Amino acid sequence: MTYQFDFGVVLRNYPILLEGTWLTIRLSITAMVLGLLIALAMVLARRSRFWGVSAISLAYVEIVRNTPFLVQIFLLYFGLPTLGIRMSPNTAAVIALSINVGAYATEIIRGGVESISKGQIEAGLAIGLRPLQVFRYVIFKPAMRAIYPALTSQFILIMLTSSVVASISANELTYVAQSLETMTFRSFEIYFVVTIVYLILTFLLSRIFDFLYGYLFSYPTR
C-alpha cells in the first residue's frame, strides 16, 4: 500500500467544511419545523368531514411516501422552471425536505391521535373541559408522548437525507465535501471526516431529543 494519508488538507479547509455543516444544521432544523407544521395540517385535513379535503391529505401522503426523494427534489428544481417557477438550490432543498418529512410525520402523528380512545375524550368533556382543552390535555400530549420516539427518529433521518440535496448543488456538507474532493483528490480523508461529522450531528441531535422528552413528557412520580 503506497497511499500516503494527508489529513492536513482537511485542516487547511476546515472553515469550508464548518460552513457546510452549519448549512446542513439549518436545512435540517427548518425542514423539521416546517414538516411538523405540514403534518399537523394534514392530520387535521385527514380527519375533516369534507371528503375532498381528506382526499387531498391522503393523496399528498401516498405520492410523497411512494416516490424517491431524489425524484422529488429534481421535480422541484429542474421541473418547475418549465412552468416558470424558479428557485435557488437551497430554497428547493428546504421545500423538498419539508414536504418529504411532512408526509412521513403525518402518518406518525395520525397513528398517535387515533390511538386515543373516544372514552377519554368523552371523559374530558364530561368534567367540563372545553374542546380546545380536550385536544391539548387529553389528545395531543398523550399522543405526542406515544409517537415521540418515531417522530424524532424521522427527524434524524431527514437530517441524514439532507445529503441528497448536494445533487442540485445546495451547498451543505456533502456538496462542500464533493467540491473539496474535486480540488484536492483526497477522497478518503475528506469523506472520513465528513462521516465523523454526520455521526456527531446524529449523536447530538439524539441527546437533545432525549432531553426534550424528559422535560416535556415526564410525569411527577409523587
Rank of each mutant, 00 (worst) to 15 (best):
L27M: 07
L27F: 05
I29G: 03
A31N: 02
V33L: 11
L36F: 14
L36Y: 04
M42L: 15
R46V: 01
R47L: 15
R49N: 13
F50Y: 15
F50E: 15
W51V: 14
G52S: 13
V53K: 05
V53N: 04
A55W: 13
S57W: 01
A59T: 14
P68L: 11
V71L: 15
Q72G: 10
I73L: 10
L75V: 15
L75P: 08
L75Y: 15
L76K: 03
F78K: 07
L80S: 06
P81E: 15
P81N: 13
T82C: 06
I85W: 11
R86G: 08
S88M: 08
N90A: 11
T91G: 11
A92Q: 01
I95P: 00
I95W: 00
A96C: 10
L97K: 01
T106E: 03
T106K: 03
I108Y: 02
I108G: 02
I108C: 05
I109W: 03
I109Q: 08
G111H: 05
G112K: 01
G112L: 01
K118P: 07
G119R: 05
Q120D: 12
Q120E: 15
I121C: 07
I121K: 12
E122I: 11
A123G: 10
L125F: 13
A126D: 12
G128E: 12
G128Y: 12
R130W: 10
R130H: 14
R130Y: 13
R130Q: 15
P131N: 14
L132N: 14
F135S: 06
R136P: 06
Y137P: 03
V138F: 02
V138C: 07
I139V: 15
P142Y: 04
P142W: 02
A143M: 06
A143G: 10
R145M: 09
A146Y: 09
P149R: 11
L151Y: 03
S153Q: 13
S153I: 05
S153C: 09
I156G: 03
L157V: 14
M159V: 05
L160T: 07
S162Q: 04
S163G: 12
S163R: 03
V164Y: 02
V165E: 00
A166L: 06
S167D: 14
S167G: 09
S169G: 11
A170C: 13
A170V: 06
E172T: 07
